[in-house]
């Protein structure tokens, strides 16, 4: 549970369409300081789009987004400044292939935030150490496994000292044996009190990490619940069906 009621992110009546198709149909959501919110829902229900709207990668149709009380959906928003406060890690490894690990990490702090390089290196090294990549600073992305790349991507976002981190299915493209190492990093971040908004299909992880579960379907938030309550006894029929289908698929996958 959030031990501080301070609101980091407040989304009000967010609507977003692609061409004439509405993808987000009025989203209302608040994320408190140090709170871990996990969004789950069927593929195509708008989870990625929601995260992408939060840092301005997608323009929105209507509604409001506030970050620490500052309205960031007003015209003339300086997105570069906002994005420094919102860390994002995507599903596909998106390190810059022409830069080694440390230069990937330093681009933001040094070029965008103008921090002294030496100081940023110390910070980066300590994060790399914490995610188990201490000796990988000079490796290039092509020399890393998928799990290592995602851990670097997480460190790269963390080194901007964001006020909230967004994770969009960061383990979805990983080989099964690498999922664990990335989820462990995220669990540790949660324990450390980082404010996080996580989209995932890993239900056991969701249950373990979440302060709160948001269930989305077809552009709506259908259910908001405590993790135990949600997984043991979902309130809505749609959530129940989703969990059933999901468990079935999970069994199939394990058997395969």
């Amino acid at each position: 549970m959030p031990d501080n009621p301070q609101v980091v992110l407040k989304i009000t009546d967010l609507v977003k369409s692609f061409d004439s198709t509405k993808v987000l149909k009025g989203i209302n959501l608040t994320v408190g300081h140090r709170e871990v919110t996990v969004i789950i829902g069927p593929s195509g229900c708008g989870k990625s789009t929601l995260l992408r709207c939060l840092n301005g990668l997608e323009p929105i149709d209507s509604g409001q987004i506030e970050l620490n009380g500052q309205l960031i959906t007003a015209p003339g928003t300086n997105w570069s400044a906002i994005r420094q406060k919102i860390g994002m890690v995507f599903q596909n490894y998106e390190l810059f292939p022409h830069l080694n690990v440390i230069d990937n990490i330093l681009l933001g702090p040094v070029k965008v935030q103008g921090r002294p390089r030496q100081e940023a290196i110390i910070d980066a090294q300590s994060w790399l150490d914490r995610v188990g990549l201490k000796d990988r600073a000079l490796s290039f992305p092509r020399q890393l496994s998928g799990g290592q790349k995602q851990r670097v991507a997480i460190v790269r976002a963390l080194c901007m000292s964001p006020q909230i981190m967004l994770f969009d299915e960061v383990t979805a493209s990983l080989d099964p044996e690498m999922v664990r190492e990335v989820l462990d990093v995220m669990l540790n971040l949660a324990k450390g009190g980082l404010t996080m908004l996580i989209v995932t299909h890993e239900m056991a992880f969701a249950r373990a990490v979440a302060d709160r579960i948001i269930f989305m379907d077809d552009g709506h938030i259908v259910e908001t619940a405590q993790p135990e309550a949600f997984f043991n006894n979902p309130e809505t029929e749609r959530a129940r069906r989703f969990l059933n289908i999901f468990q079935f698929q999970e069994l199939e996958r394990r058997r395969a």
């Binding site: 301005g56 990668l57 400044a81 995507f90 933001g108 965008v112 976002a157």
Partner: peptide
């Protein structure tokens, strides 16, 4: 993704 992850870091 190269454009998007750059933007997400706040690069102009």
């Amino acid at each position: 993704h190269q454009w998007e992850s750059g933007r997400a870091l706040g690069l102009s």
